[in-house]
Amino acid sequence: MKYLLVQEDEEGVERLWGRCAGVEGLFVDPVPPPRETLTLRGCSPEGPLSEILAEPGVSFRGLGDMCVEVWDEEEPVQWWTLVDAVVVAHQPHPGDPARYDVVIGAGVRNEESFFDVPATPRFELLAGTTVAAARAGRCSSVDGLFAPRADPDPVPLELIGCEATEPLLVGTQRPRRWAGAWADLLVLDRHGAVMASCSVDLAVSEARPSVLGYGLEDITLTDGGTDRPSPAARGIWTEWYQGPPAAPNGWAPYDAQGRTAWLELTTRAWRGRASGPDRTGGAYHLDGRFVTDVPGLHCAIAEALLGPGRYFGREWNAFKDCLSGGFGVAPPFTLTWHESDVARDALADVVEDPEGQLSYFEETVQLLERCGVTVVLR
């Protein structure tokens, strides 16, 4: 059995709902949001957006994904992704000819957020995603951003060769009368350790004798959840199935999407490690040859401090938390960053703070030094 279905009760105790030999439909690309037309009002473009608007014949020029950060007076409180954004048209803003009204065609996705829209918001634009982005300017409003949107249709998931326990067993016997519940699908490696997990809805649409026989069932879940890995992660999961990596730079051959999937697996692997006191002092060496994007930077830092397959944050905020202690290594210590020019050049246009003037690489070095790390750039 390679998969477990568990649900955590109110006291934090996990209850087993079933065991499965296989899962079909685990690796899926997210359903793309429908295309919409939005208008960036009073836009002061920078970076990639400024370059596009400066070119003649600007209509229908692609920007890739864009991130719109909604700020109150002090900080961002909402994050939106404009998927595969395309500049359709632009014209001078009526109130200020130095600014523009820019019409964008894109799919719109609201990233996880628990904050209401501020009374007087401002909008920061980033070309890319919240993980890795280049500053693209700011605007006074975005027409169409806060329109109501229907949730995408759920994508089913097939549990193959399943041994169901109560209460999932009730759902397989009476699928139309059982509403189900959300649970965690735990993915095991060949040693039986949990290497990954995702949330699934246990609403059963069909249950039938398994193709594997032996009294097992094949169960169709109506909704396999939205946090399933993409097909690009399949090879990485196959590699990790043999156990956490032992050799360095296993993440290096992958692109940014693959490296992000690698970081996801390090998160779960860290949860399963025995905790102990943080190490302080000492000298560490970062192999910077392959740090060509933000996920690669976090892979390399974690590997330098803790070893292959280990976790030390997968994005900016988590990285800051790790530097505060509790993750195996804590400042003060010395970090020698070899081939640092690779990251300096690759991340020159990538920013973490749209209000700042530093690149992601420079912000990382500054944060390390501010936390008590002696950084030696080679």
Score class of each variant (00 low, 15 high):
Glu11Arg: 15
Val13Ala: 13
Arg19Trp: 11
Val23Ala: 02
Asp29Met: 11
Pro32Cys: 08
Arg35Gly: 14
Cys43Trp: 02
Leu49Tyr: 04
Leu49Asp: 01
Pro56Asp: 07
Arg61Glu: 04
Glu69Val: 01
Glu69Ser: 09
Pro76Gln: 05
Thr81Met: 12
Ala85Val: 12
Val88Asp: 08
His90Asp: 07
Gln91Tyr: 10
Pro92Ser: 11
Gly95Arg: 15
Asp101Gln: 05
Ala106Gly: 10
Asn110Lys: 14
Glu111His: 14
Ala119Met: 12
Pro121Arg: 11
Arg122Asp: 11
Gly128Tyr: 02
Gly137Asn: 09
Gly137Cys: 10
Val142Leu: 02
Arg149Thr: 05
Asp151Met: 07
Val155Gln: 08
Leu157Gln: 11
Glu166Cys: 08
Val170Pro: 00
Ala181Leu: 05
Ala183Arg: 07
Asp189Arg: 02
Val194Asn: 04
Ala196Pro: 02
Val200Gln: 06
Leu202Ser: 01
Leu202Pro: 00
Ala207Val: 13
Gly213Glu: 01
Thr222Gly: 07
Ala232Ser: 12
Ile236Asn: 02
Gln242Pro: 00
Pro245Ser: 02
Pro245His: 00
Asn249Tyr: 04
Ala256Cys: 09
Ala261Asn: 09
Leu265His: 05
Leu265Gly: 03
Ala269Tyr: 12
Gly282Lys: 03
Gly288Lys: 07
Gly288Glu: 07
Leu297Trp: 07
Ile301Glu: 05
Ala302Trp: 02
Ala302Lys: 03
Arg310Ala: 13
Tyr311Val: 10
Cys322Pro: 04
Phe327Ser: 02
Thr334Asn: 06
Thr336Gln: 09
Glu339Ser: 15
Ala346Lys: 00
Ala348Trp: 11
Asp349Asn: 13
Val351Pro: 00
Val365Pro: 06
Val376His: 12
Val376Arg: 15
